[in-house]
Design a protein around this nucleic acid. Structure first.
Lengths: 149, 149
DNA sequence: AATGATAATGAAAATCATTCTCAATTAGGA
DNA sequence: TCCTAATTGAGAATGATTTTCATTATCATT
């Protein structure tokens, strides 16, 4: 076999859910992009390959995949949820959201050490079992700082 | 004068926006509660004191106050935004969200030192001017860990 | 390959938080 | 007090997400 199945394929089988064409296509879209796509955007991209797909399927699939940890659901405050593929490492990257232009940047993971420490402290202090975390820094990006307002 | 005006009063005057009764009542609610209230919840509480207040006023006020930094708008993933009064210190507390029961806990601020460091690194690495930040740890709370699934 | 049980899908309607519109009211300065 | 702009309330509108339900696909067994 030339191409190995992607890691999410295995996870889905483990979970006992089916790796249908629609789910595959949605995951392919998430896998190829670097952006944080909304359900609607994903819908329109998948539609090019599979014009019959329904809106509900996209939402259901994204929810399902979020529930089992294959996908991460993010809210950047623009009124719609956005989705990204969960990567095994680097699960705790920081999102920088520019309040001015709305662009979202991601930290490469340089702060992971420190985040891990915080996570450990929190876990033991509150007896809280951390499964994943989200860190948003809101402010003004380089460009918008120059550009005036 | 027996009671000094609260800090948000000054801020509002500075900003040139009016300290109307409706706005006062909404702020009072936020000031008294320890919970993270939704717009709807705030609406119903204010209604007890001022039955005529409109839904739109609550939303408008919360948006306005969020914009000038008196209020913080949070999304815990339960489909509605939630609001809290911005406290001057402790602005960067960590929210712990239990995926099982939905309860939200807050860290007292013990990690503030480390968070500040991360913030500083990010700022200089990306030339991003951090104005405020949100940190969510999702997982399972003490109670739900015992209680089974 | 046909069958049956179950999971998944598509289309449309329903939901529900939030935003908009606009006429009426209010507040604060001239 | 009068004027003007800001604020408000009611209800309609919006728009993302969910639900419903009839249909279809999947997979393990015959």
């Amino acid at each position: 076999m030339r191409y190995a199945k992607p890691w999410w394929y295995k996870r889905m089988i483990e979970e006992g859910i089916k790796f249908t064409l629609q789910r595959k296509l949605i995951l392919d879209v998430l896998n190829r992009t670097k952006k944080h796509l909304s359900a609607e955007e994903i819908y329109f991209i998948v539609r090019k390959f599979y014009p019959n797909i329904g809106f509900a399927t996209v939402y259901r699939t994204l929810d399902l995949l979020t529930k089992i940890g294959i996908v991460i659901k993010l809210n950047f405050g623009d009124g719609r949820m956005r989705y990204e593929l969960a990567e095994k490492e680097n699960a705790s990257h920081i999102h920088l959201i520019c309040k001015n232009c709305g662009k979202v940047f991601e930290d490469g993971g340089d702060e992971n050490e420190k985040i891990k420490e915080i996570e450990k402290n929190i876990s033991s202090r509150y007896n809280f079992k951390v499964e994943n975390l989200k860190i948003f820094f809101m402010g003004k990006c380089e460009n918008c700082q120059k550009g005036g307002d």
